[in-house]
Design a protein around this nucleic acid. Structure first.
Length: 809
RNA sequence: GGACGGUUAGCUCAGUUGGUUAGAGCGCUGCGUUCACAUCGCAGAGGCCACAGGUUCGAGUCCUGUAUCGUCCACCA
């Protein structure tokens, strides 16, 4: 009777949870393998990319668990800061700016709470073998406490500072952002050429700009010192149209003679280059015309209240009226936008908190070399990023739902007042400092800003370790064994965490980094909401088993992107069916098997054991090197080709036989042992079906509760028998020839061969004598003879130079 | 402009340190099975290994350059 394997998603999940199969044992002495699991953001849905990269880590972790290591695999969620706020605003159709802060924060908390159980269930469904008893949320008290105390530590180390400075600002989100949050976008724009008169001369000068609206903030004009066109004008002043401001023409080597007109005008905070220019011209006082809301302020004169775009239009018109525009050239250029909302960033001067780390760039790079990167080349991406850093890390955000700064400011003297570590976590908006300011005052102004989410999530190694009840153990766990993540957050999560490791402990946070690629759509394009090509695993799981999805995920080489096409899931599905059926067949021939070893193994059984050892060795080595895709291929080849196509077919007659008890016993033992090993090898990749097969067949004899905590198959060198492998290969070659001959003649593979004559050299005949019974059975051969052929003989088939056969049907 | 990675069969991908006729799965074409296999097995067709040079007795594999795709970074106002 045909039978399909059962899909028992819930059943096994509940079993694993109830039996605590993935429990971390704080009391054990076993070697610990610890994982700094990426906390997914609770805003939004799980997508196929999550499944992809989380499967990678889970496969590796399941392997280590079966090797007998004590797995510390906590699970956290990231649920605060801008992404969460934006999600809540959208979901609940509110605007944080129009609400009372406390009401909005409550709404965020409530929304996250509602959403979380279902969200986490998605991760359980994909078979993640994390220990959910060790859970955290980046907004919970535990994380707040760590985040705040680490902030205080850096403050005391003089690694954080607060400063009025031009900072990248998102007018939409109305908050400061960090370099890592920038995203490039291409924009079509105009390069506007503006003519201005040079005072005390009858000449003029033309500068080119993409941002004419910043004219009211213009503080300088530069040309290259060697530019012949303008050399004589250096030191003179120009009179700006509209504002009438008098601006000096300066020489600046950074000016490119060949771009535009070779003249640049600098407007306070128009962009990075303006800030650089200001830094080189310290005597020049910037004019800040951009307000926090992205609109011009009073300093912009009659353009106050306008956005950049509105002002641009207006100013260009005004300049045209004054006949000050000589031409407008259409160009495409790249602008920096905020990665969360796509708004063009602005620079404004505000007070922000920074972590000082630019001086440590070289140290970060060195620290990076102490970690094992899988794949290796991903380290270079990290280095590139570090080398390109040009700002200290701005960690304050003018948002609402997040970890507060544990800071107040003295009303009287303005000094910073930090919370006492033992009182953490604190919310300065709700709590007051326990002691007076050093100036004697007890009146304080609370810090309103919240910490950048990365400032907290960069501490996940500490957050995870401090979940342990046994505090001593924590020291052994840090640095953690593994940081798994995708390549898109090397610049953020990975870099920041490594930076924190340096700043706080002068240590690497993890020994290994596993970088996954992306799941792309069938066309090879990145999945995104705007393209509408996002795939949600919960929906796919309704159609295909989770194991098929995991099987697909494990196909990807380290760090490589993989196209997702639902068609590809059929491969995994097929494998599962095959595994299920091979097991079903095996156990139909293993009734009353009691595990006893035969006195001696038949040659074919020795061969299978020998081949199995190679598979175990290779796949184990690959898993050790985090190369799960190669391990998978190794296992699959052995299972499908060696075990199913060859061994099972060859052993059937022995399993059915009633005559030779010894040979049958050898077959039964080999079948049981090998299939069990195969199942274990597959377990990290396809945990559901392997558990199903284990429980319904092996559990009777094996004591272990779950296949996922059985012992990983061990390579046994003594079972390797190259001689028998060589001999058996001859048999397999011969069988292939027989099958081919039958196929060519259009016969059934079961067609009887009346006489098979073999002509071969002595060694080969020797090899084959061990397998004559096997050969007869699989080829349905009545008689096998040996002899030499003469030239007169017909229908001679050459298997290889040393082996020829003649088949008579 | 810089860095990294890719470019191998119609499709998705393997190809270890350079070594004989380049592999798998899907798809396609035959044939055979339906008493493990809502299938499976066997056989077959299909590749100038992106392109051009070079090193070598020998290059998909190493070097140089070009093209192209992807990602990240930097950009000129």
């Amino acid at each position: 009777m045909r039978k399909r394997y059962p899909k028992n998603l819930k059943k096994w999940q509940e079993f694993w949870e109830k039996e605590k199969i993935y429990k971390f044992d704080e009391k054990s002495n076993k070697q610990i393998y610890s994982v700094d699991t990426p906390p997914p953001t609770v805003s939004g849905k799980m997508h196929i990319g999550h499944l992809f990269s989380y499967t990678h880590q889970d496969v590796i972790i399941r392997f280590h668990r079966m090797k007998g290591e004590n797995i510390f695999y906590p699970f956290g969620t990231d649920d605060n800061g801008l992404p969460t706020e934006r999600f809540v605003e959208k979901q609940k159709r509110v605007k944080s700016a129009r609400m009372k802060r406390s009401a909005f924060v409550n709404l965020c908390q409530q929304t996250v709470k509602e959403l979380k159980p279902k969200f986490i269930q998605n991760w359980k469904d994909i078979g993640l073998s994390a220990d959910f008893d060790y859970s955290y949320s980046t907004i919970d008290k535990h994380c707040q406490k760590i985040s705040q105390s680490m902030f205080i530590e850096l403050y005391n180390k003089k690694r954080v500072y607060r400063k009025q400075a031009p900072i990248m600002w998102c007018p939409t989100c109305q908050t400061a952002i960090a370099q890592a949050e920038l995203e490039d976008r291409e924009r079509e724009s105009f390069l506007t050429y503006v003519k201005v008169n040079v005072i005390d001369t009858d000449t003029h000068i033309i500068f080119a700009t993409t941002r004419p609206e910043l004219l009211p903030a213009c503080v300088g004009i530069s040309v290259h010192p060697t530019d012949k066109r303008y050399k004589k004008l250096i030191g003179k002043k120009v009179k700006m149209p509209i504002t009438g401001a008098e601006i000096a023409i300066t020489a600046d080597e950074k000016t490119n003679k060949n771009y535009g007109s070779g003249v640049v005008y600098y407007c306070s905070y128009g962009g990075v280059e303006c800030i650089d220019w200001l830094a080189r011209h310290p005597k020049v006082k910037p004019i800040n015309i951009m307000g926090k809301d992205g609109k011009f302020n009073e300093s912009a004169g009659k353009y106050a209240g306008m956005t950049s775009l509105q002002a641009r239009e207006k100013i260009v018109l005004d300049l045209i009226k004054l006949n000050a525009i000589t031409k407008q050239q259409k160009i495409k250029h790249i602008v920096n936008t905020h990665d969360r909302c796509g708004t063009d960033i602005e620079f404004i001067a505000t007070k922000q908190w920074f972590i000082k780390y630019l001086d440590l760039k070289q140290e970060f790079i060195e620290l990076g070399t102490k970690i094992n990167w899988h794949p290796k080349y991903m380290r270079i991406r990290f280095e590139n990023w570090v080398k390109g850093l040009q700002w200290d890390w701005c960690i304050s955000r003018q948002r609402f739902f997040g970890v507060p700064f544990p800071v107040w400011y003295c009303k009287k003297c303005g000094k910073h007042k930090l919370a006492d570590i033992k009182n953490l976590p604190v919310d300065p908006l709700k709590h007051k400092p326990k002691t007076k300011c050093s100036c004697g005052s007890n009146k304080f102004i609370p810090e309103q800003d919240i910490l950048d989410t990365w400032a907290t999530s960069s501490l996940t190694p500490q957050i995870a370790v401090e979940l342990l009840k046994n505090k001593k153990l924590g020291k052994n766990i840090f640095p953690m064994s593994l940081r798994p993540q995708a390549h898109d957050i090397i610049n953020t999560w990975l870099f920041y965490a490594l930076a924190r490791g340096k700043l706080h402990f002068n240590k690497i946070p993890w020994k290994n980094i596993l970088i996954s690629g992306f799941a792309l759509d069938p066309k090879g394009e990145k999945m995104s909401k705007s393209k509408g090509n996002i795939v949600e695993p919960p929906k796919v799981i309704k159609k295909y088993p989770v194991d098929a999805l995991r099987y697909w995920s494990a196909e990807a080489s380290l760090g490589r992107d993989l196209r997702y096409d639902e068609e590809e899931l059929k491969n995994g599905h097929r494998l599962m069916t095959k595994l299920w059926n091979a097991s079903r067949f095996s156990f139909s021939r293993l009734k009353n098997f009691n595990g006893s070893k035969p006195d001696k193994l038949e040659p074919l059984d020795k061969w299978l054991f020998s081949k199995l050892q190679t598979t175990i060795k290779n796949s184990t080595d690959y898993f050790e090197k985090y190369e799960f895709a190669k391990a998978k291929k190794e296992i699959e080849d052995f299972f499908w080709k060696t075990f199913c196509d060859n061994y099972l077919e060859l052993v059937k007659y022995r399993l059915y036989s009633r005559k030779n008890k010894q040979a049958k016993q050898s077959a039964r033992y080999t079948l049981y042992t090998t299939l069990f090993a195969i199942l274990k090898l597959w377990a990290p990749i396809i945990p559901y079906i392997t558990e199903e097969i284990y429980q319904s067949n092996f559990r009777k004899l094996e004591k272990t509760k779950s296949i996922h905590i059985t012992k990983w198959p061990e390579y046994n060198k003594e079972l390797v028998d190259k001689e028998i492998e060589r001999k058996t290969q001859t048999l397999i070659d011969l069988i292939a020839i027989i099958r081919k001959e039958k196929s060519n003649k259009g016969y059934s593979l079961k067609k009887e061969i009346r006489n098979l004559t073999i002509s071969a050299d002595k060694n080969i005949i020797q090899s084959l004598t061990d397998f004559l019974e096997d050969l007869k059975a699989i080829g349905n051969i009545s008689f096998i003879g040996f002899g030499n052929f003469t030239l007169a003989d017909q229908n001679i088939i050459t298997v290889n130079p040393n082996l020829k056969v003649k088949i008579v049907f």
